[in-house]
Design a protein around this nucleic acid. Structure first.
Length: 229
DNA sequence: GGCTGGATTCACT
DNA sequence: GTGAATCCAGCCA
């Protein structure tokens, strides 16, 4: 994808008016454009919804942090984690439900130079790694705390008109036969729920890593403990 | 008010 | 493969 704006039509809000685990696979191959950078989604995870999902931020009810997830569909839910990273989600289901799809990885298809400038600190970086991982994707797109709650739905076609700040575009939906699903990455609960979806064989899909509990005070826990196998 | 753990990434071995 | 970095939401006393 070269210079100039992508000419895909915008996704309608009704696209997101479904449970996140139904929206998630349909998002693969779609394009999220923010400013001059656009990313084709290759890996996503579904969270929350009508059924209780203990791994979702909405599990314990509405809070100031997760309020956007309970809002109207098609908006961005951006949260801060691990003291240094932002992750972006797209809100699903109508107002009042807490549900969203985490954007885990994608391919930068527009604004490559801009994305590279944001991601690399003067070090060489392969194109496939620009948005390979949820925090990396957020950086490549320039998404931060201030973009929490941003609407990505553009009523009508964006053709011939400037995009709004963030816009979900149709893109080219992934071939259903190439979509795989499995357990979600890095969570400590509900590990068995296969709500991670990715495009099989795509080089921009991030490697799966199981949750590893962190030790805050290694010195305090290393004395007298049996060696772990 | 203190404590814990986290939807991660990167450098280093 | 392992561990550090670093801030904050949520829980509990």
């Amino acid at each position: 994808m070269g210079r100039g704006q992508l000419s895909f039509a915008a996704l309608p809000r009704s696209f997101f008016d479904r449970p996140s685990h139904e929206v998630a696979p349909d998002l693969l191959g779609r394009v999220l454009a923010h400013g001059s950078v656009a990313v084709r989604l290759t890996e996503v995870e579904a969270y929350g919804g009508p059924g209780e999902d203990p791994a979702a931020h909405t599990y314990r009810g509405r809070t100031p942090r997760n309020a956007v997830m309970f809002g109207p569909p098609g908006h961005l839910y951006v949260y801060f984690t691990y003291g240094m990273h932002f992750c972006a989600n797209l809100v699903c289901l109508p107002d009042g439900f807490g549900s969203a799809v985490l954007l885990r990885a994608g391919e930068v298809v527009e604004g490559l130079a801009e994305a590279r400038a944001r991601r690399s600190n003067g070090k060489p970086l392969a194109d496939r790694d620009l948005a390979r991982g949820p925090a990396r994707l957020a950086v490549a797109l320039g998404l931060m705390r201030e973009h929490n709650g941003l609407d990505t739905i553009m009523e009508g076609s964006p053709l011939g008109r400037p995009r709004q700040s963030a816009t979900m575009l149709e893109g080219v939906p992934a071939d259903p036969s190439s979509i795989r699903s499995g357990p979600r990455t890095g969570i400590s609960t509900a590990k068995e729920v296969p709500w991670r979806f990715w495009i099989d064989g795509d080089p921009t899909v991030s490697p799966y890593r199981a949750h590893v509990p962190r030790r805050r005070n290694a010195a305090a826990t290393s004395v007298g403990e049996a060696p772990s196998s």
